[in-house]
Amino acid sequence: MLNIMMVTLKGIFRDRVFQGIMALAVLFLFIPSAASLSMRQVTELSVTLSLSLISFILLLLSVFLGGTSLWRDIERRYSYSVLSLPLRRSSYVLGRFLGLALFMLLTSTVLGLASCAAIAVSSTLYPAERPVVWGFLLLALVYATLKYVLLVAVALLLSTVSTSFFLPIFGTICTYLASGISQQVYEYVHSPAAAQAVSPMLKQAVTVAYYLIPNLAGFDLKLNAIYGVAPNPGGLALTAAYFLTYTAILLGASILVFNRREMK
């Protein structure tokens, strides 16, 4: 498993997709000057832009690397030479996942340092009324990483089912989009205002979807980091537990499906 993990990491670092996406990190250089456009919240804006850029890069990485990782092994027939080694399929899938997760962690560490530099520059140029709470920034980064690691697990599950890259990539993107609005739709459907307009069937379907689709909104601590608002510790613990259980389910299902998969 460790072996597969290291190979996964090496593979990503030598991958052109990764190199292309990481070119976006150059944008960190422009954050201080872009943030100075703000009228009253330069530091806040630099935090916003940094966290958003990290979020965006992690999203691209999780979708494209998570979605193509298994698919590429099968498509390029690496799977014959790898799965015939005395490895269990479960260690292969877990190794892949852990490799990707570790990679996400490394990326967000590096990008996090870059954003700290950008924010530090902004806040020295235009000192903020409310100083940046670095602890909250760290929390926001950690939870953003967890969010995209969970998305990697979604991509992995989809690619154990699919024979092409289409489902993993677009399925993951759709999951991501749906995860952002599921809370809103759920609340709307169950609001008294919607009581007449929504049929009971639809209401139930939405409820089922709400519990099925990963709820990623809870992982978003940007507001807390940007405006220095203390997050709710109980909520953080629940979110972390949610991450663990949901990821465990996704990985379990992935292994189950991949065990049955035939390398024709």
């Binding site: 072996n3 290291m6 030598r14 027939r77 690496y78 030479s81 080694l85």
Partner: peptide, 27 residues
């Protein structure tokens, strides 16, 4: 077992040496 697949393909982002180390560890 030593297995050679038909028209084999190996992780092409590794060097031969790295690939053999990977296989050896798997064994």
């Amino acid at each position: 077992v030593g297995y050679l697949p038909e028209n084999p393909a190996f992780y092409d982002y590794l060097s031969a040496e790295e690939y053999l180390l990977f296989v050896g560890r798997a064994f």
